[in-house]
Nucleic acid binder design. Structure first.
Lengths: 127, 127
DNA sequence: ATACGACTTAAACCATGGTTTAAGTCAACG
DNA sequence: CGTTGACTTAAACCATGGTTTAAGTCGTAT
């Protein structure tokens, strides 16, 4: 099994080392091993967990939620129902956010079109 | 022309009055009129501008960016090119963010499926 | 030997985006 | 007349999510 240093993990996922340390301190990355000098060793399992953290972060789950999820993973199989429910809820929240952004983007597109055509016919106000 | 009070604007867009005041203080809502007692009066134009602020906020434009856009609106037609460029750039940023969220959602969906089927065949690690 | 680079820690610091508080003004209602 | 409700202000406060700093340890290359 190959292990990664923090710099390799940082480079692989393109996030600062300081952020990885911060995540560990916040409990998002439990069970990270250390070498004989106290340096973090990321196993493939840990790299997968880090990728999961990033994935949840990309979809705007708060730190507290990610921590809860990670705590449940560590607890083991008896938390699968809880994790399933959490991911289902999160999925709905993400879909709602994407829908809101997509809707807002329509209005932005409308502005772009208006600016491109300079359609100011007196009905449009200031914008 | 009908005017709205801050409480009506708050109710219409479902955001706290304190947030509207904060936006005005930050320069996102310029030229708001006042009645003889100093209370804010939102014209239809102002309501449209507030909706624009909310739209940009929904798509995660920072306050500083929204302020720049509003400043350009106040400046008038000579800033149309700048506004067009800004909205085009912002649109690309929003599309990129939606793409990232959509991609991350795929991984979440994969977890959901795995939890539903309880497919733990020894190759999956802890999750 | 020493200096460099990669790492460690705890704690301080920072930006962003609001929210809350305290103190006050005004108009209308009982 | 007084109190209630809707509003005003400036300033303090807060949560979130990191980032930076300072001081130190280790292994390796010169």
């Amino acid at each position: 099994m190959k292990y990664c240093s923090i710099s390799e993990a940082s480079a692989k996922f393109n996030i600062p080392e300081s952020t990885i340390r911060y995540y560990e301190k916040k409990g998002l990355l439990p069970l990270i091993e250390r070498d004989e000098n106290g340096r973090r060793l990321f196993s493939e399992n840990q790299m997968a967990l880090l990728e999961t953290v990033i994935c949840l972060k990309n979809t705007h789950m708060p730190i507290s939620g990610i921590k809860q999820y990670m705590d449940w993973i560590i607890e083991g199989d008896q938390t699968i129902e809880l994790r399933l429910e959490m991911m289902n809820n999160h999925k709905q929240a993400v879909l709602a956010e994407i829908a809101l952004m997509t809707e807002s983007l329509k209005r932005i597109d409308f502005k772009i079109t208006r600016y491109q055509n300079r359609n100011y016919n007196g009905e449009e106000g200031l914008e």
